Amino acid sequence: KEFRPGDKVVLPPYGVGVVAGIAQRSVSGVSRAYYQVDFPGSRSKAYVPVEAPHSVGLRKAL
Rank of each mutant, 00 (worst) to 15 (best):
L58V: 04
S28R: 12
V19W: 00
K45V: 15
Y35N: 03
V19R: 00
R43S: 13
E51K: 05
A23G: 05
G17Q: 00
V37Y: 00
P13V: 06
P40C: 14
P53S: 14
E2Y: 10
V10C: 13
S31M: 14
R32Y: 08
K8G: 03
G57S: 04
Q24G: 04
V56P: 05
V50C: 05
F39P: 00
A46Q: 11
R25D: 04
R59P: 03
L62G: 15
R25E: 04
S55I: 11
K1C: 15
L62T: 14
V18C: 11
R25S: 07
G21D: 05
R4C: 14
G17S: 01
V19S: 02
D38Q: 11
P49C: 10
G17Y: 00
K60S: 09
V50E: 02
R25G: 09
P49Q: 05
H54V: 05
K1V: 15
F39L: 04
P5G: 03
R25L: 14
Q36E: 15
V18M: 07
V10M: 08
D38V: 14
V30W: 03
V56L: 06
K8R: 12
D38T: 12
P12K: 05
R43V: 13
G57I: 05
Y14E: 01
Y47H: 03
G57K: 05
I22H: 02
Y47G: 01
A52V: 06
D38M: 12
P5Q: 09
V16T: 09
A46T: 06
K8D: 04
R59E: 12
P40A: 09
G41Y: 10
G21M: 09
V27I: 12
V48S: 01
A46L: 08
F39H: 00
D38S: 11
A33E: 15
V56G: 10
F39K: 00
A33Y: 13
V50W: 04
K60F: 07
K60W: 05
P12N: 05
V9H: 01
A52E: 11
L58M: 14
D7F: 02
V27A: 06
G21I: 04
G29S: 03
V10T: 07
R4K: 12
V48R: 00
V19I: 15
G57R: 06
A61E: 09
Y35D: 03
S26L: 13
G41W: 07
G29H: 03
V10Y: 14
P12L: 07
K60T: 07
G21Q: 08
S31A: 10
V30T: 09
Y47W: 11
K45A: 12
G41T: 10
G57F: 02
G15Y: 03
P13Q: 06
A52Q: 07
G41I: 09
Y34V: 03
V37W: 00
A20E: 09
L62R: 10
G17N: 01
G29M: 02
V9Y: 05
V56C: 15
G6F: 03
P5V: 14
F3C: 15
S44K: 13
P49I: 04
Q24H: 12
S42G: 11
K60Q: 08
K45W: 06
S31V: 14
A52D: 15
V50P: 00
V30M: 07
G57Y: 03
V27L: 08
V50G: 01
S31L: 13
K60D: 12
K1T: 14
R4N: 13
R4H: 12
K8E: 08
S44V: 15
V56F: 05
K45M: 11
I22G: 00
G41M: 09
I22Q: 03
K8Y: 13
E2Q: 10
S26Y: 10
I22P: 01
G6K: 02
Y47P: 00
G21N: 07
F3D: 02
R43D: 13
K60Y: 06
V48W: 03
E2L: 11
Y34E: 03
V19A: 01
P12A: 07
Y35F: 08
A20K: 11
R25C: 15
I22Y: 04
I22S: 07
H54R: 06
E51P: 03
R43I: 12
Y34D: 04
Q24M: 14
A23V: 15
P40E: 10
R4Y: 10
P5N: 06
R32S: 11
Q24R: 11
G29N: 04
K60H: 15
S55G: 07
F3N: 01
L11P: 03
A46E: 06
P40W: 08
P12G: 04
G57V: 04
P53A: 15
H54G: 12
Y14D: 01
R59A: 07
V19C: 06
A46H: 10
S42E: 08
S26G: 05
S55Q: 09
S31H: 09
D7N: 03
D38E: 14
A33I: 09
Y35E: 05
S55P: 05
F39R: 00
R32H: 10
A20L: 10
S42Q: 10
R43Y: 11
K1M: 15
G29F: 01
V18T: 08
A33C: 14
Q36F: 06
G6I: 01
V16K: 07
S31R: 11
K60N: 11
P13K: 09
S55L: 13
V37C: 04
V10N: 05
S55H: 09
R59I: 12
K8M: 13
R32T: 10
Q36W: 06
E2C: 13
R32M: 11
P12D: 07
P13E: 06
V16H: 11
R25T: 08
R25M: 13
Y35W: 05
E51R: 04
V37K: 00
A33K: 11
V16N: 08
L62H: 13
R43F: 12
V48F: 04
R4L: 12
V27G: 05
G15S: 02
A23F: 14
Y14C: 13
P5Y: 07
S55A: 10
V10R: 05
Y14S: 01
G6D: 02
P53K: 04
F3V: 03
G15H: 02
R59T: 12
A23W: 09
L62A: 14
D38R: 08
R43G: 14
F3H: 07
R59N: 06
P53W: 13
K60L: 13
L62D: 15
R4E: 10
Q24C: 15
P13W: 07
A52I: 06
P40H: 09
S31D: 09
P49D: 10
L58R: 03
D7R: 02
G29L: 02
Q24K: 11
A20N: 08
K1G: 14
Y14F: 12
K45G: 05
D38K: 09
G41E: 12
F3R: 01
G29A: 02
R25F: 12
F39V: 02
Y14R: 04
Y35Q: 02
D7W: 10
A52N: 14
A52G: 08
E51L: 07
P40I: 10
P40Y: 11
F39C: 15
D7V: 04
V56K: 09
G57L: 03
S26P: 06
K60P: 15
S42F: 10
A33S: 12
G15D: 01
A46W: 05
P40K: 07
S44D: 12
I22E: 02
V27K: 09
S26M: 14
R25K: 09
A46F: 08
Q36P: 03
I22C: 04
H54W: 09
R4P: 09
P40N: 07
D7T: 08
G21F: 04
A52W: 09
P12Y: 11
Q24T: 13
Y14V: 02
P49K: 02
F39Y: 02
F39I: 03
S28F: 07
S42K: 11
G29Y: 00
G6W: 01
K45Q: 11
L11Q: 07
R4A: 12
L62N: 14
E2D: 11
S44A: 13
A46D: 02
R43P: 13
S31W: 13
L11V: 05
G21A: 11
S26W: 14
D7M: 06
K1H: 14
P12E: 09
V9D: 00
G57H: 05
V30A: 06
L11S: 02
G6V: 01
G6E: 02
V10L: 08
E51M: 06
S55V: 11
V9N: 00
S44W: 13
P53C: 11
Q24E: 11
K60M: 10
A46R: 10
V37G: 01
Q36K: 09
V56Q: 08
D7E: 08
R32L: 10
K8I: 15
E51G: 08
K45S: 15
V50Y: 05
S26V: 15
A52H: 09
V56H: 14
G41D: 13
V10W: 13
I22D: 01
P13H: 10
R59V: 12
F3W: 10
V50I: 10
V19N: 00
P5A: 11
Y34A: 01
S26I: 14
A33W: 14
E2T: 10
P53F: 06
V18I: 12
